[in-house]
Nucleic acid binder design. Sequence first.
DNA 1: ATTATCTATAGATCTATAGATAATGC
DNA 2: ATTATCTATAGATCTATAGATAATGC
Lengths: 182, 182
Amino acid sequence: MPDPTPAPTRAQQITAAARTLLETEGPDALTMRRIAEAVGIRAPSLYKHFPDKQAVEAALKAESLRETAEALEAAEARTPGSFAALAAAYRTYALAHPHLYRLATDRPLEREAIAPGLENRAAAPLFRAVGGDEHVARAAWAFAHGMVMLELTGRFPADADLDKAWATGAEAFRAENSDGAP
Amino acid sequence: MPDPTPAPTRAQQITAAARTLLETEGPDALTMRRIAEAVGIRAPSLYKHFPDKQAVEAALKAESLRETAEALEAAEARTPGSFAALAAAYRTYALAHPHLYRLATDRPLEREAIAPGLENRAAAPLFRAVGGDEHVARAAWAFAHGMVMLELTGRFPADADLDKAWATGAEAFRAENSDGAP
DNA sequence: ATTATCTATAGATCTATAGATAATGC
DNA sequence: ATTATCTATAGATCTATAGATAATGC
């Protein structure tokens, strides 16, 4: 019988160390030297496992995207057809992993480095919840991303009731509001 | 009669040079050395006019915020009460100044470095256009910010019809949708 | 007197490559 | 044989301060 928890490959150790650094100390700590130190090797050895730093970052973006998809799929399974439930899950994931979320959404995605279909998979629950309209789905995603980013960046007033703002957006993009009202 | 176009102060020259660098070459070009070179002095001399680099960046953020407020006020004057008109003006400004917009919204704002009331001034037209509900105003702002950032970052599919996504959000946050529907 | 500027430089980093050496797998 | 690792280092930068010198304003 195969080992149920196979030893992680070096590449996996590197990605895991990079993630821990990013999540605990922020983007400035994400250097090849710090990553190597965390793994217990010297920085030049990293280049036997990843061509360059961008490739390490791309692996972290793929992780974040996959976990976002999983969070949305779980929310959909619990509460089918509810954009509010998806929005809550999206917010929860992003606020739990602020540096990772930012890395994954903040700069262009190296699409050749992520699994084909992963972007679509992450978008699918939202598409379904807003009634299958791609334009509504994009607007709803923008709302959720904007709320998360403005919240993470501290741009709302300190005393703002963000739950109410989220509820407003959840209401605005409900599937029932998307079909034919004047 | 006073000079109608007074010579810019050094601080103004420095801010202007910094802005040109940022807008034309992006954030990596925004170094104290490059700024000094553009002004025609040596980098250490900058510190007679700004305490540190963050202060230069704060001046650029204030400029961006003021111009955003002006763009929204102009749109409101042309088309009072229309969130769609404000959203269009917001998008136009951000896409015309992508690096500046990103600098101004991407990281925490040094609020002590910007004119008191400027944040409120920028928010006021939106607040009015959505019918005076602060929660709707925040959700609508998040939508607009999210659309801009996802568009700037290249996260929508290349063939996505973003005009339609903007129109969807503009409809969703219209003042008429904000009062009392079930 | 004060202010602006300069040179020189401290004090930190980074990413990535070259080439040698040790460990592993056939 | 091949792979992983190491040391050494190229080649770039950065921000910011110290202290000297020149220019300006009273």
